[in-house]
Design a protein around this nucleic acid. Structure first.
Lengths: 343, 343
DNA sequence: CATGCTTCTGTGAGCGTTCACAGTAGAGAA
DNA sequence: TTCTCTACTGTGAACGCTCACAGAAGCATG
C-alpha cells in the first residue's frame, strides 16, 4: 500500500461541485463566472453562495485550454542583465506593471533574456501562446527577440520608443525632449551659461531626444552649441564618471552639466569632487529619471522625474487593449522637474 | 461575415499533428516528450524529427489540466514594498531565482503582497494550485500569508530563517553569525577597540544573529560589551543615519562601526561625514550584504558578501526537491569578507 | 508447444472548463 | 388560441494532453 501523500493537498472543488451545491447546471455557474449575463437573480445569488461555501476558484488551465487565452502576460527584459541590477528604474517599472496586472487578476511572468539560449527558449515559450502579450524592456536597437515576436503577431508594448520595429508595436515613453528642455532652462535660470551635457547612448531614441532638447533650448537662448561641451555615456555610473573627466579636460570652464541619467550623474559628482569643484556652487548638476539614486547622491540630485507609475499603468492598459483587438498605440507622458540640491 | 482576426496568430500544432507526421500514435509522442522510456530508437528519432519539422511546443494548459501540476512557481514578496525598491539585494535574488528556474523550463510568477486585498487574492491564487510552490521573501515575523500557505501544505522555501513557522518550511540563509564574527575580527585586526554596532531589526533572526556574532568576538577578545555602543535600525538608509547620530552622542570615542546592512552603512557614512570624522582614519565602517550600494558608497564599503547567486540557486533546488516529495530542508551558506576602503 | 517476461505501441477515457445549441417558460401581439 | 420574442437553463462536445490498460511482438524458459 504505497500512498504517496505529499503534504495532503486535496483536490480543490470544481465547477461541478458548485453547480450541485447551488442546484443549477455547469453552464449557469460558468455564466455567473463570466459576467453574469442571461442569469436570473435567484440563480446568480445561489451560485455566489455556493462559491463562497465551497471556496471554489476557477481552474485556469481548463479555461485556457478551451479559450486559447492564457490570461497571463510576460515581462520581458532583453537588456544586458547588469543594468537590471544597477538601475532602480527597472524595479519601479516591474512593480508598477505587476500591480496594474494584479488589478485584472493577471499574473506576470518574469522573463530574462540574457544569453542566446535563454532568448531562444523564451521566444518559443511566447510564440507557443503561453502568454497573451508581452511588456518589453529593451532600450538597444535591433532587438532580435522583439522582432521575432512582432512577426509572430504577439501583442507587444515597449517601454520607450523601440527602434526598427514597425508601427505594430505599441510603446509608452516619457517626453524625453521636453524633460531635457525643462532641465536646461532651469540651469539657464540659475545663471549658468557654459552648460555641458553627458548624453545617453545615441543609438537609442531616448538618448537622441534628450540631447535634442538640450540643443534646442541653448539655441533659443542664443547660445552657440559647443561640441567640447558634449560627451556621451551609456547610462551607467562608470560612464558618467568617465564622461565628466573628458568634459572637464575639453572645457574646464564648464559651470553646469545636464546628465541624461541619475546613475551617470552619480559618476559625474564623483569626478567633480575629485577635480576639486563644489556642487552646485562651481558646477551645477542636473540628472534625469528621479530614480532612488537621485536621493542617495550627495548632494541630492536636481533631476527630471519620469512618471514610472503612470508609465507602467499605461503599458498594461495599452497591452490589454491590444490583446482585446485594438490597434497599437503610442503614449507619451509628461515629465516634471524635481529641484533638490545639485542645481 | 464577421471574422475577428486579431493579428493572424494561427493555432499551433498539437501532439496529434506530430503523431501523424511521425507515423506513430499520440501515446508514443507523449512518451518521447516525457523522458523517452519504453520507446524504440526508431520511433524516438521519427518523433523528434516531426517535432522539429512542425515546430511543436507542448500545450502546458492541457498538460497541467491532467497532471494537476502547474509547472510554474511563485516568487512572493511580502516585505513592505519600499524595500523592494531601495534594496538591490532583491534584484539579485529575483534574477538568480528566475534563471535557476529557467534552466528547468519553469516560469516564475512575480507576486507582490503589499495591501490586504493583494494578500487575499494571492493566497487564493496559490492555494488554488495555480503554482506548485513558492519562493518567499519576508523578513518580518509572523507573516500571515506564509502561515496560511504552510497550513494549506504548499511547498515553501523562505529566504532567511522564518519566524513562527514550523519545520515544514524550508529556508536558505547566509551564515549571519559567522559573517558578523568575520567583520568584527577584521575591525579588531586593524587596531580598533571601541567598536560600535548598528543592528538590523531585532525581531528577525538575521538581526539577532549578526548582533550575536558581534558580541561573541568582542567577548572572546576580552573586551566588555558596552550598551552605549549598540543601536538598532531597520536596514534602511535613513535608520543607519539616525543610528549613527545616536551612537556618536552616546559614545563619541567610537573608532569603528559594524553596520548590519550596506544600505544602513551609507547612512552611517553620511552621519560620520557630517560630524567631521574621516573614514576609515577616525572611524572604520564595516557593512553587510555586499550589495551594489557598497560600491556606490564613498569611501567604498568593506563588507560581508552574502552569496546571493548561491542562495537563489539553493532556494530553487530545495523547492523543487520539496515539490518532488522530499522533506523540507534548511541550508546555511558561508559568507565572505570583502575588503575595500572603509575599514 | 505453452508460458512468462520484457519491450514497445495504440486506444479510450477523462482532466475542468467554455461554447454552441436546443429547449422551456412566460409575456405580449396577432 | 397561436405565434413570436425574450429571458433563462441544461446538455453534449470539444480543447490538447497524460494515464492506465490492453495487446503485440520477440525471446528465453519450462
Amino acid at each position: 500500500m504505497t500512498m504517496s501523500n505529499t503534504g495532503g493537498r486535496r483536490r480543490p472543488p470544481t465547477i461541478h461541485d458548485v453547480a450541485r451545491e447551488a442546484g443549477v447546471s455547469r453552464g449557469t455557474v460558468s455564466r455567473v463566472l463570466n459576467g453574469g449575463h442571461y442569469v436570473s437573480p435567484a440563480a446568480q445569488e445561489a451560485v455566489n453562495a455556493a462559491i463562497r461555501k465551497t471556496g471554489y476558484v476557477v481552474n485556469r488551465h481548463a479555461r485556457s485550454l478551451i479559450t486559447g487565452r492564457s490570461d497571463s502576460i510576460g515581462f520581458l527584459l532583453t537588456e544586458p542583465q547588469e543594468k537590471f541590477f544597477e538601475d532602480p528604474n527597472f524595479n519601479v517599472l516591474l512593480r508598477g506593471c505587476t500591480q496594474a496586472l494584479a488589478a485584472h487578476d493577471i499574473p506576470l511572468l518574469l522573463m530574462l533574456a540574457g544569453t542566446k539560449d535563454e532568448r531562444r527558449r523564451i521566444t518559443r515559450y511566447i510564440t507557443a501562446g503561453h502568454v497573451d502579450g508581452v511588456l518589453l524592456v529593451s532600450s538597444h536597437s535591433g532587438d532580435p527577440v522583439a522582432e521575432e515576436l512582432r512577426e509572430a503577431g504577439v501583442p507587444l508594448v515597449a517601454c520607450g520608443k523601440p527602434i526598427g520595429l514597425g508601427s505594430k508595436v505599441s510603446y509608452v515613453a516619457a517626453d524625453d525632449r521636453d524633460g531635457a528642455r525643462d532641465m536646461v532652462r532651469h540651469l539657464l535660470s540659475v545663471g549658468r551659461r557654459r552648460i555641458g551635457v553627458v548624453t545617453g547612448p545615441l543609438d537609442t531614441p531616448g538618448g537622441v531626444e534628450r540631447l535634442a532638447g538640450y540643443k534646442e533650448v541653448l539655441t533659443e537662448a542664443g547660445i552657440e552649441i559647443d561640441d567640447r561641451l558634449i560627451v556621451s555615456g551609456d547610462y551607467s555610473r562608470a560612464s558618467g564618471e568617465a564622461g565628466a573627466e573628458r568634459l572637464l579636460a575639453q572645457a574646464p570652464d564648464v559651470d553646469a552639466v545636464f546628465v541624461a541619467s541619475d546613475l551617470m550623474a552619480q559618476g559625474v559628482l564623483t569626478a567633480l569632487e575629485r577635480s576639486g569643484r563644489r556642487v552646485p556652487q562651481d558646477v551645477a548638476v542636473g540628472g534625469f529619471d528621479d530614480s532612488p539614486a537621485a536621493l542617495s547622491a550627495r548632494p541630492e540630485l536636481t533631476t527630471i522625474r519620469q512618471p514610472w507609475d503612470r508609465i507602467s499603468a499605461e503599458m498594461v492598459r495599452v497591452l490589454l487593449a491590444q490583446i482585446g483587438g485594438e490597434d497599437p498605440a503610442a503614449v507619451i507622458l509628461p515629465t516634471e522637474l524635481v529641484r533638490r540640491e545639485s542645481a
